[in-house]
């Protein structure tokens, strides 16, 4: 199994505290990896560091064997292979759902607008949200907004997709839908790193899991093994 995402010895200091203190993990193609842990254990920070939104003090992030950061400079071409879905989604408030998805392929990927548009519509259809394509983010429900955010990240064709607490904006009944949706993405070959403290959801979606505590990976394995009785 080829390793798509590799994190090696990630350390991140915030003021005097190590919020990440040597995290090492790797995820292969088509694998859903759940990052478990209480709030404030550094799950979000790890995702942000993995995507290059925050700098790390020590360690290395690699995608398909290529380093995200070489001699202190962020390699945008590597970064583009990692998609990130924020907990609050952060959809572009002045654009419609469809425009949110089209934006990066056209202006970053230099894709012809017509092509980007038809691919975006396709993505929205697959995620079951195409009927809301002309809605503004303010008019979307939490679940709808999340699907648009996933479509927006997937439109750049990333090999790795990072999701921060994907079930926090949903009512429990929708968990299954999201889990199915993410499994579908994994089935097409994407590596998924999902930060969550929602154990039922983690059990449903993850192939493997890692338990984060005080900036360290306390253990890896199946969700049931890591959190007995959870």
């Amino acid at each position: 199994m080829s390793l798509t995402l590799e994190l090696r010895g990630i350390r991140k200091r915030r003021e005097a505290r190590w919020v990440l203190d040597g995290v090492t993990l790797s995820i292969g193609r088509g694998v859903v990896y759940a990052l478990l842990g209480e709030s404030g254990t550094g799950k979000s920070t790890l995702l942000r560091c993995t995507q290059g939104l925050e700098t790390i003090d020590e360690g290395e992030v690699k995608v398909g064997g290529r380093a995200l950061c070489s001699s202190g400079v962020l390699d945008e071409s590597v970064r583009r292979r990692i998609g990130l879905v924020f907990q609050q989604h952060h959809l572009f408030a002045h654009r419609t759902a469809l425009e949110n998805v089209v934006e990066a392929p056209v202006h970053v990927g230099k894709m012809p607008p017509a092509e980007a548009r038809s691919r975006a519509v396709e993505l929205l259809e697959r995620l079951g949200i195409a009927h809301r394509r002309d809605a503004r983010p303010a008019d979307l429900s939490g679940g709808e907004s999340q699907r648009v955010a996933i479509a927006r990240a997937m439109a750049m064709g990333p090999e790795v997709l990072l999701l921060d607490e994907p079930t926090s904006a949903l009512d429990p009944a929708r968990r299954k839908d999201v889990a199915r949706l993410l499994r579908g993405l994994a089935a097409e070959g994407t590596a998924l790193l999902v930060a969550t403290h929602d154990l039922p959801f983690a059990k449903e979606v993850a192939d493997r899991a890692g338990l984060l505590g005080q900036g360290r990976l306390l253990g890896e394995g199946r969700v049931e093994e890591l959190v007995p009785g959870g």
């Binding site: 970064r79 990130l84 924020f86 952060h90 934006e103």
Partner: peptide, 29 residues
């Protein structure tokens, strides 16, 4: 909101591009 800039950066936009396409249009409003 700072999340707008972060979302743009996470999609691979440079800061000038993110300002032009995402932040400034909203700021003008």
């Amino acid at each position: 909101p700072p999340g707008q800039m972060e979302a743009a950066r996470a999609l691979g936009m440079s800061v000038p591009l993110a300002l032009r396409r995402i932040v400034v249009p909203q700021a003008l409003r």
